[in-house]
């Protein structure tokens, strides 16, 4: 494994995502998402590695947005949650701000974990958020994350629940103001029954984050090399003319 610094990885991710053709705001946010997931122990780099082929295939998609009865329906058309969802997540937040709470369902979304950092940003404004989705490996397992926070930090709980039958392949998101009726109860979110794993406690998660934040990040050399290859696509070939126009004689 290769060791890279936090800033170095962030810069490389931005440059690599820029090569996909996204705008500055979009690729900066995507890079931050990957890094945040890695630092929080949710395997951002592994998710990215898995997502890269589809990211290269499905560039510049935008979700189909419908809104009914204070609930949003977002069709991602098999696009990764890494891109294209920032405005939609902001819309969920605005709805919660207006009405106390709002819900959204993401259909046909790959790598829904990438929504987590976006929800963290919402929670830093003093909101609660929860997200759950069926595991890709085992559709009878429900991954569930609850976030709450403010400008001083984020508290995260993550659990895995076992259902009796395969779950619908959609992602459910809820955002709520702290004064709303939103439940921060960590009990079974959709009547799935059995708690398989209490994935992270707050203290452990925070400790992990701080430890990783203050040290370097390890990355698969193949992935690093792939990111560098992607990043090179935004560079302009050098010519004598460009050399003479850019610095010392």
């Amino acid at each position: 494994m290769l060791r890279v610094s936090y800033g170095e990885l962030l810069a490389q991710l931005k440059q690599s995502f820029e090569a996909f053709g996204y705008s500055l705001g979009e690729y900066e946010s995507a890079a931050t998402c990957v890094l945040s997931l890695e630092l929080w122990g949710f395997g951002g780099l592994a998710l990215l590695e898995a997502a890269l082929p589809s990211l290269e295939l499905h560039k510049q998609w935008a979700p189909g947005v419908t809104y009914e009865s204070n609930a949003l329906m977002l069709d991602c058309y098999q696009g990764s949650a890494l891109f294209g969802l920032i405005p939609s997540l902001e819309l969920i937040y605005v709805k919660a701000r207006q009405h106390g709470a709002s819900r959204a369902t993401l259909l046909n979304c790959t790598e829904p974990e990438f929504v987590l950092p976006l929800l963290m940003q919402v929670c830093q404004r003093g909101y609660y958020a929860s997200i759950h989705w069926p595991s890709t490996e085992d559709p009878t397992q429900l991954r569930w994350v609850l976030l709450e926070g403010d400008v001083s930090g984020i508290r995260v709980d993550s659990k895995i629940w076992q259902a009796n039958a395969p779950l619908q392949a959609s992602v459910s998101i809820e955002v709520a103001r702290p004064d709303s009726a939103f439940s921060s109860d960590h009990s079974d979110p959709e009547g799935q029954g059995l708690l398989l794993q209490d994935h992270w406690g707050n203290a452990a998660l925070q400790a992990l984050f701080e430890e990783r934040y203050m040290s370097s990040v390890t990355i698969d050399p193949w992935l690093w090399s792939r990111l560098q290859d992607l990043g090179r696509q935004v560079l302009v070939p050098s010519t004598e003319a460009s050399r003479s126009g850019a610095g010392a004689d």
Binding site: L235, P237, S238, S242, G245, A246
Partner: peptide
Amino acid sequence: WYRSEEKMEPRLGDRACDAGAERELP
């Protein structure tokens, strides 16, 4: 403004005559 493939050196180009405007720095 763009980044050259030579050590990613930032450089200035002229849209009228230099290549690379499609990859300009934001």
